[in-house]
Amino acid sequence: MIKVENLHKHFDKLEVLKGIDYEIKEKEVVCVIGPSGSGKSTFLRCINLLEEITNGAIYIDGVKVNDPKTNINDIRTEVGMVFQQFNLFPHMTVLDNITMAPMLIRKLSKPEAEKLALELLDKVGLRAKADNYPQQLSGGQQQRVAIARALAMKPKVMLFDEPTSALDPEMVNEVLDVMKQLALEGMTMVVVTHEMGFAREVADRVVFMDGGFIVEQGDPEQLFGNPQNERTKAFLGKVL
């Protein structure tokens, strides 16, 4: 469903991605791990073109995203994204955060959008907070709202960029639980994370990135239990 071919990304002279080839199948959960600065976020952000692609190609359902003829906004409605810093809209209530895009882009009526939003809030356990503003919520709650907001567009894929890294430790699990639930329901997910426990338990495949390359990838048992590459071993030695 997502096919990445020889992906290169430069920031001016700095080459951050040095040729990534990868394919993500429908309903697959892929966790991306690796040291800081290895290009994980950049890789994720290239998929929905938050970063311009320098070279190579990414296809979503056969549509080349970095083709000048492709409408990038259409692509983005199919690709949900959850950020480390939540990025909820502070001037809108929780409910409005979720209904805004479906109404504006999917042309849902207000009652339809609100019904959908409340269902999603049920799913992340926050229906009671519908009328609150984001600042009145804890970090974990905000991130769950951000997930609901992304889901409201009914995306085919969800991208998560370290969704729990900005959270206090006691809030990490409430967000991971929502993500696990989503995985069980068959959502296609790409998750950049430092939560090795989550990767091991939920991922279908784990990708280890270092220095702008995919150094090693495989199913969790294999990658965590029997890593082949020296760099993978060194990294896992430090984090496990």
Binding site: N73, R76, V79, F83, N87, L88, A146, R149, A150, M153
Partner: peptide
């Protein structure tokens, strides 16, 4: 970025 990622 959040707004654009929703397709706005």
């Amino acid at each position: 970025e959040a707004a654009r990622s929703l397709g706005l």
